[in-house]
Write a protein that binds this DNA or RNA. Structure first.
Lengths: 341, 341
DNA sequence: CTGTTAGCGCTTTCAC
DNA sequence: GTGAAAGCGCTAACAG
């Protein structure tokens, strides 16, 4: 059984209070410090964070809930959050919702029960009710990448609508008139990006026939199936806009299996500069999100909230919410062709 | 401040013991159960797992240490571990080593301090010393994917040597004689796969000139740089074997930028059937690992150990180690050409 | 089936 | 600067 401070007490003859101070960086006489150092080494003493957490009512642990841990996008953000937290001496408790709203609800409850000091969430689509246990326990929450339709919370996002509109405008500027969209309106980002697409098309006075709108989910499977349908159309689009990375992968797969070439026969535009866009022969033209910034900013805001709570002695203030909107940029690859009329 | 069982006591007039039994699924009179249900609802009571953990000396939480959370391979395994654990009512505490041995050591200590019931580790290369805090605290550990050179532990792996040898044999059977290898001898899997490569070449009596051996690390960057060097050789190999997924991605990138085509001019063989091999025009021929099985088996063994420990009342037995070796298979794509002499 | 009591390992007043 | 004692929220004997 691991050593406790009682064992240290036996070993050194000092009192629990002194040992506790020593462990927490308080002032201790040099000769006592030596004794303690020796005892800790000898007994391989390690603080029991559970016991400490019980009395301090703080675990120095942040809960991070992700919608899909197999998603590279999530991985990169998790990595960055981990780096930031570890600088601050905080640990992170990661839970994976696997795109399942119920599992997410369960996970949030788990985090609350584990008494995390704060929660960073990359939410699954749905209602913000899943976060109620956290609010009930007065645990600060910061949303990354996505927001909720039904409630305003601290968050770090990009302007999905604007980014999508910009992407589409680029296609239009390159002479494209017949542009299809493969999207997922039920997703927060999917909806916003779809709206941005429509806005840009509207403003350019370009019609979007229903066959050019492929709504589904943010998955490779949907991208693949949708693209195959688009490729079979009598009046094929000259460009396709995918509302996320997964969809774009499916698009490429469908293209690879066909006799249709990118960008000669059809142009492709999508989101996120990850592995895929580097590895393809013709690099993809995409909207690039500053993924590390999501993690950095998220941790920053959360820490601010945690500190505010400490100062207010327990309860979270109620002065509105922080909303960081990160800048995106377009990465020009070779997947978009210029068309002259 | 969140409600405690004391509040429930006030509310219902029942004793702490009864409430505790109720919370832990014990037998309680129906009418008391009703009262308790009502009180829990009214007060939004949530168990404080920290307090519970302190007394039960068990947190129903498993620590999972991964070498790189941005790696898709890690993501898939984490996902599966999460699914399995959640079925068993366990949570997971994920820590990311970011391929840094020191960070890994810190992470393991963090997990031990957090009193996890067990640890599943996808280790960074290096010595098994990092796990000492876990052994000291008598916390069972299961290794996934990689092992240590210096100590035998419970693990789930594949036979890397055999799998690599099989892959190379396939190249040889297809008429290849000049085969290069891009590898990372310092990695556990890298070393084994390199050895398998050499064994197969030896047995076929084929020489491997030093320029055909590109040793570095398991990264896309290394694969890219190494492949570029190989492509510039006077006497270019007809096939290249990559010892992991990242390297293979780099290989493809280098190929894409060159005028050299796969498989017409050069054949490519590698590891792991992930996104990449699906998305390329010519699907890759690769060794496929049963990734979900890693997670499933890992959890299974860990649970067995945790239970043994409970039965032995605290201390882990010492009857050797379990070593599960999973079967691999070759996925035949279009990246390997048949050469006739 | 229910209540009383002790105590998990630690921090934190408050005297000294 | 150090020590004694109380208590964080819960479970686990043991009696009743």
């Amino acid at each position: 059984m691991p050593a406790t401070i009682k064992d240290i007490k036996e070993e050194t003859g000092l009192s629990l209070a002194t040992i506790s101070k020593y462990l927490n960086g308080g002032n201790v006489l040099p000769k006592n410090r030596e004794k303690l150092d020796a005892a800790v080494n000898k007994l391989h003493y390690q603080v029991n964070e559970i016991a400490r957490g019980l009395v301090t009512n703080s675990t120095r642990t942040v809960g991070v809930s992700v919608f899909d841990i197999t998603d590279v996008f999530n991985g990169v953000i998790l990595h960055e959050i981990g780096v930031q937290l570890s600088k601050l001496g905080y640990g992170m408790l990661i839970v994976d919702s696997a795109n399942d709203h119920e599992r997410e609800a369960k996970n949030i409850r788990f985090l609350v029960n584990k008494k995390v000091d704060g929660i960073i969430s990359l939410p699954v689509a749905g209602s913000s009710e899943v976060l109620n246990p956290a609010f009930g326990a007065d645990i600060p929450v910061v949303l990354l990448d996505r927001q909720y339709w039904d409630r305003s919370l601290d968050s770090v996002t990009i302007n999905n609508r604007e980014a999508a509109a910009g992407a589409v405008k680029y296609l239009i500027d390159n002479g494209h008139r017949k542009i299809a969209v493969i999207c997922a309106k039920k997703e927060f980002t999917g909806r916003e990006r779809y709206d941005g697409f429509m806005k840009a098309m509207d403003e350019a006075g370009l019609p979007v026939p229903v066959e050019y709108i492929e709504d589904g989910d943010h998955s490779m499977e949907h991208g693949y199936a949708a693209m195959n349908r688009l490729l079979k159309l009598e009046d094929r689009p000259t460009a396709v806009f995918s509302s996320n990375y997964g969809i774009n992968m499916g698009v490429i797969m469908a293209l690879n299996e066909s006799q249709i070439n990118c960008p000669e026969d059809i142009s492709v535009m999508g989101f996120d500069k990850l592995m895929l866009s580097n590895v393809l022969k013709t690099q993809l033209t995409v909207i690039e999100q500053p993924m590390e910034r999501f993690g950095q900013k998220g941790v920053e805001i959360l820490m601010q909230r945690i500190n505010e709570k400490k100062e207010n002695k327990g309860s979270l203030g109620d002065e509105g919410h922080i909303n960081i909107v990160l800048r995106t940029r377009m990465h020009i690859g070779g997947s978009v062709n210029k068309i002259s009329h």
